[in-house]
Design a protein around this nucleic acid. Structure first.
Lengths: 225, 225
DNA sequence: CCGCATCCTCAGCCCGGGTTCAGGAGCAGC
DNA sequence: GCTGCTCCTGAACCCGGGCTGAGGATGCGG
């Protein structure tokens, strides 16, 4: 695991480096924002530890620039102040976690490992069944290269189907996962949305990805039909 | 995707609910630990967001109880304090991730999606007797590589036979396991379905996997015929 | 305020398939 | 072979799950 530590306080940087190396990390250190930004772009680090207060370019800027450059390496922000503003701003700039100084070595390692466990955020985060792709975060959907316009509900229903591709999901199941607790309407709504979906993702392409399993529910073909 | 938010601060809960709904989640809210525990057990949520500081029962307790009750829904813990103890303890009690308040909406959503992505890996769970395979969850059946279309009843009957392959199962037994308790119709129905099955899984393949044991019942050949 | 997209309701239709039934075939004992 | 079972088989009935089109309600942007 390769870590980049961007920290201008030499003593602290050295201490962190030593600690992390003892825990089996390979550690590089940058002492200012510009250098940190450069290294983070040039090298495929598994995680970046980024101080906020830096000479030249501060942590926020580094973070934003990295994300702008499509670098999605997990970033843990270090902040001296315990200001709410710092924290929210840090996370809004695309950081994945933050830690307030002073911090214990144990916590730092725990958080780094947590970030690593999650792995690179795989920003697109699309799920797929065959050539039917779906980006839950971006609320988009494609059949092959063709993007399909889906409404929020349609996409939610399809998302649930894609996440269980190959398995039969009952209408009750869809209802429970896509609609609120307090939905007490006509369960027929599921059939209606399946129909909407078929009209958009199957029929125009001459496919049959959403199969009806009479008496049980629906099944999205694992290969997308 | 169905989310349960357990959070006693009404304003925060409402804000989170609104935010998540805008991102296409179906959100239920519980305002104390007892309610949260109850709902999380009763409903198949895809993920639970759990505040630590709760009236009645705190987040740790809720988390531990859920795991003790064999509920493995991913849990994201929210903590106000930035205590080292909180974090490690949270992960020890079976939580899957934690987030320190205040947090940005973006980060919350990103983490929830990360948890969902890790979600249940869709186990195949097929049962078989020789080259006769059957996927109870997917409601599908194959003889070798050839898929066989079975109706719900047919598949239920065959499933019971496959689960007892090599043993004789009586008609009464099949009736009891496949049909409702209150079924008081013609027991001949079992014979009828055995016939349907033979027509689909045996005859076209020149096999005899379902043997009649006169006076006792039927036996599915352990090697699939 | 109007128009449009989205979400949901409703009622009618169709057909798959679960069940029943009656008669025929096969097996066992005499 | 005859009798009395059990089991097989084909056809017919009919219920209800699933599909569909139309239209009302709601909310949002212009």
């Amino acid at each position: 695991m390769r870590v980049l530590v961007v920290e201008d306080e030499v003593a602290l940087a050295a201490s962190v480096k030593r600690g992390l190396e003892a825990d089996g990390f390979a550690v590089d250190v940058a002492h200012d924002g510009v250098d940190g930004l450069w290294r983070a772009q040039e090298t495929a680090y598994d995680v970046v530890v980024l101080d906020l207060m830096l000479p030249g370019m501060n942590g926020f800027q580094v973070c934003r620039r990295l994300r702008a450059a499509e670098v999605w390496t997990p970033i843990l922000i270090l902040t001296a102040k315990d200001g709410e503003l710092d924290e929210t701003e840090a996370l809004d700039t695309g950081a994945d976690d933050f830690l307030t100084k002073p911090f214990s070595h144990l916590v730092l390692v725990a958080r780094l490992r947590a970030l690593l466990r999650r792995g690179a955020p795989a920003r697109p985060a699309v799920i797929a069944a065959g050539d039917l792709r779906l980006d839950p975060a971006g609320r988009r959907c494609w059949r092959g290269d063709i993007e399909i316009a889906l409404t929020a509900r349609e996409l939610s229903v399809l998302e649930h189907l894609v996440r269980h591709a190959g398995q039969v999901v009952s209408k009750r199941d869809v209802l429970d996962h896509v609609w609120d607790d307090d939905f007490e309407g006509d369960p027929n709504i599921v059939e209606v949305y399946v129909r909407y979906l078929r009209r958009k993702v199957d029929i125009p392409f001459g496919r049959t990805s959403i199969e009806t399993v009479r008496g049980s529910g629906y099944r999205l073909a694992a290969d997308g039909g």
